[in-house]
């Protein structure tokens, strides 16, 4: 079956390639948990601990065992979904992260959709009209976009739209307190409110979302627009486009049927890098807008030195990123007709 379905084989091969990366991520996050300043046992035993209780903590945490064995224990705990206890909330870190993940995902995905919706048409326009104002606008946005610190953009947007114009709600969380949280189905407020048919809450959540998502979108827009423009220019100057034009195909058919489909491939590849930036910038945006996602959870944990929570967050983000990269590559396989016939 694999022999007859080259595309299926490519998909399976790509999934298998993710395994060593996951192993590497787990090893690095293990190293990070064991590299705590000083003796972790002293830290986790608490301030009031004496020699005996430190020793007790050390044995309880398995820190007296040799490192390879500690690593196996760590992997075993991960398999059971145990990321340790958060010192501040008193709950399991995994539970905390799972509760807060939908908020972060809703923010990041909305921002990325917004960024792609603006950047891809902008890049195409800039490539088809080089030297015009669209092209210059694209260039300015691209350079400014990567230079703007996300936390700064967020603050400026708050000042303009909340303080000066008064059209944005106060930048505190996902929903104003006058609304009730929609019933939990997916954890995405927009989707949950739409399922419940509660459009007033939907609008409330959307108003709350638009500024942080816009901030994040401004940051992620730049690489996508830049890549779209470059890829579109390459595609437009290639031989098959010349042939298509010579054959008398209509302008829009050449542009969207042939050039755009080919230009989309490198754009999809850059999405992986864009996700890396977006997930990092997400942390800053969540702090600015008091967004109750996993980023602000990690920042709060960092401030009070709640290490288990921070390490759990880093590992969760890395696994999420590996998964996203996998999805992007599979998407690539799906839209590129050439892959699967002569791939490695």
């Amino acid at each position: 079956m694999l022999r007859t379905h080259p595309r299926l084989r490519a998909v399976l091969l790509r999934c298998a390639q993710a395994i060593p990366v996951v192993v590497g991520v787990v090893v690095i996050s293990f190293v990070l948990t064991r590299a705590l300043p000083g003796d972790p046992a002293v830290y986790f035993a608490g301030v009031m601990a004496d020699e005996a209780s430190i020793q007790e903590t050390r044995v309880a945490m398995g820190l007296d065992k040799p490192l390879p064995q500690q690593f196996l224990i760590y992997v075993g705990e991960l398999m059971r979904g145990d990321l340790g206890q958060s010192l501040t909330s008193g709950r399991a870190v995994a539970t905390d992260l799972a509760n807060r993940l939908p908020a972060s995902l809703e923010l990041t995905l909305t921002a990325l959709l917004l960024a792609c919706a603006i950047a891809i048409p902008l890049g195409v326009l800039a490539a088809t009209r080089p030297g015009t104002w669209v092209d210059h606008l694209c260039r300015v946005i691209v350079t400014a976009g990567v230079s703007l610190p996300t936390f700064f953009t967020g603050i400026v947007l708050i000042y303009v739209f909340y303080y000066l114009l008064g059209i944005a709600p106060s930048p505190l969380g996902r929903l104003d307190f006058i609304y009730l949280e929609p019933e939990h189905v997916t954890g995405f407020y927009l989707i949950d409110a739409a399922i419940a048919g509660d459009w007033e809450t939907w609008w409330g959540a959307a108003k709350q979302l638009i500024l942080p998502a816009g901030t994040l979108a401004l940051f992620t827009l730049a690489p996508v627009a830049r890549m779209t423009r470059a890829a579109m220019l390459t595609a437009l100057s290639s031989d098959f486009i010349r042939t298509a034009r010579a054959a008398g195909l209509s302008r829009s058919r050449v542009l969207y049927g042939y050039a755009f489909r080919n230009a989309l491939l490198p754009v999809v590849t850059t999405l992986g890098m864009v996700f890396s930036f977006a997930l990092g910038a997400n942390v800053l945006v969540e702090k600015v807008f008091a967004w109750p996602g996993i980023g602000s959870y990690a920042v709060e944990a960092l401030v009070v030195s709640d290490y288990a929570a921070v390490q759990g967050f880093v590992l969760a983000m890395a696994l999420l990123f590996v998964l996203l990269n996998l999805v992007i590559d599979l998407l690539y396989t799906a839209i590129d007709p050439r892959i699967g016939f002569d791939s490695k």
Binding site: I28, F277, L279, G280, A281, V283, V310, V314, F321
Partner: peptide
């Protein structure tokens, strides 16, 4: 494989 800013935080 890590989102780079997140790795720096870690």
């Amino acid at each position: 494989a890590f989102p780079l800013f997140v790795l720096a935080m870690g």
